[in-house]
Design a protein around this nucleic acid. Sequence first.
DNA 1: TAAAACTATGAACGTCATACACAGTACGCC
DNA 2: GGCGTACTGTGTATGACGTTCATAGTTTTA
Lengths: 275, 275
Amino acid sequence: MAEDRLPPVLRRLWGHEPVPRRGPRPRLDLATITAAAIEIADAEGLAGVSMNSVATRVGVAATALYRYIGSKDDLLVLMADAVAPDPPDPSGRPWRDYLALWTRIQRDIVLRHTWVLPIANFAPPLGPRRLLWLDRAFAALDGTGLDDGEKINVASTLAGYALTDAAIVHTAGTGLQEYADSGIDSAADYGELLAEVLDPGTYPALSAAVRAGVFRGAESWVDDADFRFGLDLLLDGVEQLIARRTSDRRAADERASDGRAAADDRTSGGHVAGK
Amino acid sequence: MAEDRLPPVLRRLWGHEPVPRRGPRPRLDLATITAAAIEIADAEGLAGVSMNSVATRVGVAATALYRYIGSKDDLLVLMADAVAPDPPDPSGRPWRDYLALWTRIQRDIVLRHTWVLPIANFAPPLGPRRLLWLDRAFAALDGTGLDDGEKINVASTLAGYALTDAAIVHTAGTGLQEYADSGIDSAADYGELLAEVLDPGTYPALSAAVRAGVFRGAESWVDDADFRFGLDLLLDGVEQLIARRTSDRRAADERASDGRAAADDRTSGGHVAGK
DNA sequence: TAAAACTATGAACGTCATACACAGTACGCC
DNA sequence: GGCGTACTGTGTATGACGTTCATAGTTTTA
């Protein structure tokens, strides 16, 4: 609020840009530009998104976009942020249920817009929409006894899992498009190819498995059970961590015999949030 | 061996290309091209890798490379495969120890060559070196009672974890380079930025945490304990799965009272590998 | 009404991946 | 030993792309 020396795009994105008082009204804004880019990416893939295509779609020349964004990379960041819908409301739900939902929805977003995969860089979010998701994860973990750093780790781990699972589902489902022109478009073809190529001498275990037909049942290669399996794995770990923190907390409370600190485990939480 | 209608690059990569009997000797081969590209990427990042830069480094014109590879994307695939060193030998080691090492080394590879992050697409590997790694994971899981599909899932999950953890470490460590020019190059700066920008009304939990100083201790944001934590989580899950399969197997053995099937749990394994 | 502030445009530049025709080179056969 | 053939590397060209910059046009303030 005081300094406000953000990157220009972010300043625009957060509405910290002073309203222009003179000159012609801007014909565009970040939202319409980003929306246009997303529509193109959804329809033609990321390769179809060029400054030119986006600009002509919103009805201006390509160079006009540089009044709003600094570079194409800026635009990609905006796109990756803008695809996120509103997160569900965590209030009243057990943290585990909520985070499971939270993760699944994020994965589904990526699967619906697979062009975010090349964009996603696992960097801490700076856009308003992804930060909204992060906020909800924090809220869901309120009162669990985790400290704020741990909450961040949990959230980023789950978000990362959503991303990688989406990536696996995507490449397994859409096929290995890079080699699609060579007749490899299913796991079975992949298996045949490996069978041709693997020397049992240097790849003993793998070539045995391939020849036994691992890749015949292509559809079961990746399915929803795999997603739930990994997710439950991670959530089990979080639960374990929470249990440990809870007992730590109890011990500390006993040491400092202070009634206030022994408040309800569920709602108040806040050994950090309180000031 | 019979058909051999692979993509041309793969054919070259696997040595299935007929040796040219006439004309001048090829001045290059895939290995030197790939090595040159990797050196450039290590030194200048992926942006420095162009057909021109690679070609001049190996001493030819840019277009000469197309005698060996079909496109730049081919080259990127080759690079991603070639960075993998020889995997350690799993023989004699417990599967869990080995897979932990297997995963950690893969993460370290990516951290040493972070340009693979934009390349890595989680697709099933086709290069000889990554397949070698997959083979070793298979070997390590031999005798655990997992079926081949499960082994693949385990390996790809762990490989994915190595990748995402490397991504997180990289973006957290090297800083948010995209915004580095705006003075954001540490987690603390990131926290200050969020504090400026977040409205406590719409981001209640997160802004409270930020104002409490979550991002002050930048160095502890991501450390090795985080890696081990997630890894152990996953390996615990695998162990659980193995235990389940082992009991399944035992029940089946009892039903079919066949002495041969009840052989040593550890070494032979192979309800699939044994033809 | 004139100046000021701001917007969109068009031309231009440098880079890049890639296609294609051509020239040079070495082997195999006569 | 010479010729054809198959193959390799080069040069030129092309089209697309991201981005810069000077310019023209437009709206508000003074």
